[in-house]
Design a protein around this nucleic acid. Structure first.
Lengths: 344, 344
DNA sequence: CTTGCCTGAGAAAGCGTTTTCTCAGTTCGC
DNA sequence: GCGAACTGAGAAAACGCTTTCTCAGGCAAG
């Protein structure tokens, strides 16, 4: 008959009276505390089952000081990269009985730190993806966010593990691949100017240029989505480059689409590369050569690092660096006589 | 100097002593209750600011009986459709100060109802995407999940709005489009057998067959992802159909990729259609003809319905039906002399 | 048979808020 | 000038749970 206390839902008190014991005993039984008489325990369990009693997590959280929930702040849920991180994180956390609360900042980085704070207070820990937040701001708020794990950027604040993809290395692998195919004029279709991962790519390219002085590398302004790539067609053609490194797969796909509309052949006329190896990359036409980032695994690792922090395992987890793996597909091919050569 | 109470974080008590008032007064000030003297209010606010006090949401939730959080249960976070729903939901909810907790059931439908219950207890309401759950189970758990909004399926349980995409109508639009192009032999690459949205498509196709007796429609087994489409190439070719309706865009992309590998031309040899119009659909080669589902808007609507329920607005919201819009692109074209005709 | 230890369960004190209840101090009306 | 209505803030209860504290009763040892 599920009598209900003052509030709507049935609580521990209802089970207690039904079983003829105190709240405390019910709690003990529900939590597997074995200092309770087996007969009484059975009675309590029966009562709980009959009333379909389920402990109220909010009350539990308050008493226990933990929510069994972690938060993740992402700048854009529409971005496949963050979707994949979320997926990996959620899956790994679920395995340990944790749920994930999402906070999408919709690219307005001014809100990010408030959002992060709010999310953190409701959770036991936080994963922060905030590529555009300034270092100063990050350092400032990091302590109040602990336990905190950073994605794709680092900080001086102590006890904040970082999981970063080695974009610099990846971009060099790609450039190297293009050069091996005979390309001598490359162009980099850059990402958002203040993005941390864009910085890393630029550094990698600098290193590459130093090592390959004979290769010309043009820098082009860009962004991080389809449209960016699509709109960049003119700039790309104007550069005279035959090997294009797009900021990521999305940009590369947009670019290929634009080149296709112009009647140009990829990779016959121009080779195009992406970055990330999102699930769709292998299904483009031609299939996209890219640097595969184990991004779901990164989400999973984020949970492991966070878990260590939550459990206060003093493992001094220093964070992890992920190496992209060059994934050669059909969008890159031998350079034909470079257009400038034809032209000259 | 942020003195801290017993626990680590600073709480309302710290602010109270610093401002020389009671907890109650601090609470009143923080919640904008104007029955407090302006001078005292200012003093409290100053103290709060200096201590960087932020109310503990868990305590608040317990006292208020609400969490300002909603949950969403999805069968697979890797599926672009659910990603888009999540995005729309999260964005709309955020606008009203609500966060979203995600629960991924990873396609194990046996866990779905437990997962839903757990999520619901931590939240003020729930959005449920459970295409494979049996009607019986759904009806059984629905009352305990209220406020509840259903995606792409309905239930007899009262006060449960449903947002459903009219897949039946959409599939008929697509089939009609193919017939207009001269195709007389179609094939439907079905989705997961027990999926509710697959059922709707099948019903739509039945209606279509009744209306177009001269058109032959072959049913093929399938699934819901890339690989399904890719593996279906043989079956598709064996069917002799020239117009293929894939379960969704993912399957269509897999199929196109497979056809391409076989050296077949789309749409020259075979026309292929998808469903959903995921963001990538326009960037395939050829761009995919599909039925566009306003899926992000659906997520947004889900919030509006849920909000009405949470606020107990007796609007008797009956749910909403979304009409897909035929999006003709380059993957469909005129039927060439049907292969059976050539053959005969 | 008494003392002391141990087991097990109830009473009560938190956890951090909000909100009702209560009451001291004012102000107003007559 | 005195009682009533009102204002504003503190005390305390409530939210639903966990956990410490306390204590009654059972048992073994002396």
């Amino acid at each position: 008959m599920a009598r209900k206390s003052a509030s709507g839902r049935i609580g521990i008190a209802d089970v207690a009276v039904k079983a003829g014991v105190s709240h405390a005993t019910v709690s003990r039984v529900m939590n597997g505390n074995f200092t309770v008489d087996p007969d009484i325990a059975a009675r309590v369990r029966a009562a709980a089952a009959e009333l379909k009693y389920q402990p109220n997590p909010v009350g539990r959280s308050l008493a226990l000081g933990k929510t069994d929930t972690i938060g993740i702040v992402v700048p854009d849920l529409a971005n496949p990269t963050f979707q994949a991180i979320l997926r990996g994180l959620s899956r790994a956390a679920a395995q340990d009985g944790y749920r994930v609360l999402i906070a999408d900042s919709f690219e307005v980085s001014s809100e990010e730190s408030i959002l992060a704070g709010e999310a953190r207070r409701r959770c036991d820990g936080l994963v922060l993806c905030a590529p555009r937040m300034s270092d100063a701001e990050l350092t400032e708020i990091a302590p109040s966010l602990h336990p905190l794990v950073l994605i794709n950027r680092t900080t001086d604040a102590p006890d904040v593990p970082s999981l970063v993809v080695d974009y610099g290395h990846g971009v060099q692998d790609i450039a190297g691949h293009l050069v091996e195919l005979g390309h001598t004029r490359l162009a980099f279709l850059a990402g958002p100017p203040r993005s941390a991962s864009n910085e890393m790519r630029l550094k990698g390219l600098e290193a590459f240029k130093d090592a390959h002085p004979q290769v010309e590398v043009t820098m082009l302004e860009g962004g991080s989505d389809f449209d960016t790539g699509h709109e960049a067609v003119d700039a790309v053609l104007a550069s005279g480059a035959t090997g294009i490194l797009a900021f990521n797969d999305l940009v590369a796909m947009g670019l290929m689409s634009g080149l296709h509309e112009r009647g140009l052949d990829v990779p016959g006329d121009i080779s195009v590369t992406g970055f990330d190896d999102i699930p769709f990359a292998r299904y483009t036409t031609p299939a996209l050569t890219t640097a595969a980032v184990p991004i779901t695994e990164l989400g999973e690792q984020a949970w492991h690092q966070l878990r260590a922090l939550i459990r206060k395992e003093g493992n001094e987890v220093p964070g992890t660096r992920f190496q992209p793996r060059l994934e050669v597909r059909a969008s890159t091919g031998p350079a034909k006589a470079s257009r400038s050569a034809v032209h000259g």
